[in-house]
Design a protein around this nucleic acid. Structure first.
Length: 137
DNA sequence: GCCAACGTTGGC
DNA sequence: GCCAACGTTGGC
């Protein structure tokens, strides 16, 4: 299984809205590196759900419910989206500040490539963030 | 509100 | 093919 992190501005689409929807198509990605990450996602892969701009913290865990397919909101190009569904909220949200304060995360894409909206997370990074957030799933 | 990072556009 | 200008993202 691979691990990921997706960003959403809570103003635009919050974790609570995501939970209310139950499943959502992760559309609108228009960056090639992010697109490649979407294409690499496999059914059941897990991802952190991060609130950018407001909150600046990982608030939940989601998983891939459908692998990459053509993004219906794209006018042209070969943009793709995946379907994701919430697994559960992070018992203790993990803040960007806490992540940045830990030297073990200096290679985390969220830190190094701050503008990338869909990024990979290594297994050790995943486990460490889960511990910080008291995630027991 | 500012600014750094970075992708895209367009002139040459 | 280079590079300046510009737009967007996202943290501070």
């Amino acid at each position: 299984m691979n691990y990921w992190l997706v960003k959403s501005e809570p103003d635009a689409y919050s974790w609570d809205q995501f939970v209310a929807d139950g499943i959502t198509a992760w559309t609108g990605v228009r960056n090639h590196m992010a697109k490649n990450n979407l294409k690499a996602m496999r059914l059941g892969d897990r991802m952190f759900y991060y609130h950018s701009n407001i909150g600046l913290e990982i608030v939940g865990v989601a998983e891939v419910a459908r692998e990459a397919y053509r993004d219906p909101t794209a006018q042209g190009g070969d943009w793709v989206c995946v379907d994701i569904k919430p697994v559960g909220p992070m018992p203790v949200p993990v803040t960007l500040a806490a992540i940045k304060a830990d030297p073990k995360f200096e290679d985390l894409a969220l830190v190094r490539l701050s503008r990338l909206s869909v990024s990979p997370v290594t297994k050790p990074q995943w486990d460490r963030i889960c511990r910080m957030g008291k995630w027991t799933g």
